[in-house]
């Protein structure tokens, strides 16, 4: 019976793999034991013990995020500005006045000019007057 093309290769592969290793099992066991002498015995190392490093890292990260959340000043600045703006008694403003708050105590008033007919003036520069 003739062989399929792949079978030649598979037979040769098996022969190649069946060659004995350079180290006998006894020599290999000795070589591995020598390498183990520098490492600790695995006994009593339960799986949770291996988790302490990731757990500490996660806890540290959570503490850092909480600290930033609680103490960074930017978080409170915006509401303060708005509250101060609300508390200030502003003069009554017309429809053509624009107020821009530079900070909590400094309003900037911009008045839009209009021509006598009541239409907004055209700017030569195309921007604010």
């Amino acid at each position: 019976m003739s062989k399929k093309p792949g079978e030649d290769w598979e037979d040769a592969w098996r022969v190649w793999l069946d060659r004995p290793p350079r180290k006998s099992p006894e020599q290999a066991a000795r070589a591995v034991s020598d390498r183990l002498s520098s490492s600790k015995a695995p006994a009593n190392r339960e799986s949770w013990v291996w988790l302490w490093r990731p757990l500490v890292a996660v806890a540290a990260l959570l503490i850092a995020v909480a600290a930033v959340w609680l103490w960074v000043p930017w978080k409170e600045q915006k509401p303060k500005v708005m509250a101060a703006a609300n508390e200030l008694s502003l003069p009554s403003l017309g429809d053509d006045v624009l107020v821009i708050w530079l900070d909590s105590e400094t309003p900037l008033y911009l008045t839009l000019a209009s021509d006598p007919d009541g239409r907004p003036a055209e700017s030569n520069s195309g921007g604010l007057l």
Partner: peptide, 27 residues
């Protein structure tokens, strides 16, 4: 026994599995 830290027991495991593991690694 190997789990409990017995190196001789682990050496026995190495001897039992060496040939098969080397075949796999060769490929």
């Amino acid at each position: 026994r190997a789990r409990e830290g017995d190196r001789d027991a682990f050496a026995a495991i190495v001897q039992a599995r060496w040939g098969s593991l080397v075949r796999l690694a060769r490929s």
